[in-house]
């Protein structure tokens, strides 16, 4: 696995440790004290790196090719997960996947973006950038979940909706808009977990939820920092600065009152260890469902509506 750029010093240390181990074995010299010392240094370095990540570095983690993804999480979280496909209008969009399964005691519908792991799969899944069909499939599955009284869980991980010719011809804007409107009317709880990249309208299109959770190194933004830099600065190299200004890390999104909770990742990021993060996602979801399922259908809808109704920061003189 290729290390992220800022992890290179750490990776160099690990390489050194491996070399020393090999040397010790080949030459029968006891180097264990040195090795332990360097291992300690590596651990310390890892802690230091991960405790002072910049937004741009966090984005690199959020985009890591080994991040946990929707289909893997569905398998890890659920018993009897069965994938369902197609929008019943045009085609099956592999950038958004979905299916049914059992999460603990609950029958649930899982929907999420899927970027793809290797090159071939990435191309098939269009790097997780959906066409309108993806949103329409998502809505079809949400309505089915509503019909069969199954809570909905959505996993967000997309650079954004696909800016392509066919996507426009088939109504990308309409497809996203419709989801935003109709998700408000769904009677079952909707939980969203931003697991990687929350890219703009392409993310929001399946994220109108009662609760929004974010993995520690996930991001959520109105535009990619690269896009923002090239538009506002006319200079793509300002992306790092834009990443700071846009306030897109999990901490920022919680601070702004949009996300409800951060799920801590193992040291070094969730891409190193899916098991632990899957467990913590599962526990968090079960906890939220316990809360929400105490509410009536009307209360579930109202809670979701009021959450989104409250978003916005502006000034207004108090009425006299």
């Amino acid at each position: 696995m290729k290390p992220l750029e800022f992890e290179k010093p750490l990776d160099d240390l690990y390489t050194k440790i491996d070399e020393l181990k090999q040397l010790s074995q080949e030459s029968n010299i006891d180097l264990s004290t040195d090795i332990t010392a360097i291992e300690k240094r590596a651990e310390k370095m890892k802690e230091d790196i991960y405790s002072s990540l910049t937004p741009a570095q966090i984005i690199q983690i959020a985009r890591h090719p080994n991040r946990p993804n929707t289909l893997s999480l569905a398998q890890l979280l659920c018993e009897e997960f069965t994938e369902l496909k197609g929008d019943r209008c045009f085609r099956d969009d592999p950038s958004i996947v979905g299916g049914v399964g059992k999460l603990g005691p609950h029958r649930v519908m899982i929907i999420g973006h899927q970027k793809g792991a290797d090159t071939k799969e990435k191309i098939k899944r269009n790097f997780g950038m959906p066409h309108p069909e993806g949103y329409r499939k998502g809505l079809r599955l949400m309505k089915m979940a509503d019909k069969f009284d199954m809570p909905i869980i959505t996993f967000i991980d997309t650079p954004g909706a696909y800016p392509g010719k066919e996507a426009e011809e088939r109504g990308q804007a309409e497809a996203i808009a419709r989801n935003l409107k109709e998700m408000i009317g769904i009677n079952v709880p909707i939980l969203t977990v931003v697991i990687g990249e929350g890219g703009s309208g392409g993310a929001l299109g399946i994220a109108v939820a009662n609760r929004i959770l974010m993995l520690e190194y996930a991001v959520y933004s109105v535009i990619s920092p690269e896009g923002c830099a090239s538009i506002l600065f006319r200079d793509a190299s300002r992306a790092e600065y834009a990443a700071e200004k846009l306030k897109m890390t999990a901490n920022d999104i919680v601070e702004l009152g949009i996300a409800d909770k951060i799920l801590k990742e193992p040291l070094g990021g969730a891409h190193n260890e899916w098991g632990a993060i899957a467990t913590s996602i599962k526990n968090a979801l079960l906890e939220e469902l316990d809360d929400l399922l105490k509410l009536s259908k009307e209360e579930i809808k109202n809670q979701r509506y009021n959450k989104f109704r409250s978003f916005g920061k502006f000034k207004e003189p108090k009425p006299a």
Binding site: I184, V222, I258, F311, G312
Partner: peptide
């Protein structure tokens, strides 16, 4: 863009209404 994620949320807010 100058309002970051908050501007994105206006899409959901208006559609919800």
């Amino acid at each position: 863009m100058q309002e970051g994620i908050m501007s994105l949320m206006q899409m959901a807010k208006t559609s919800a209404a």
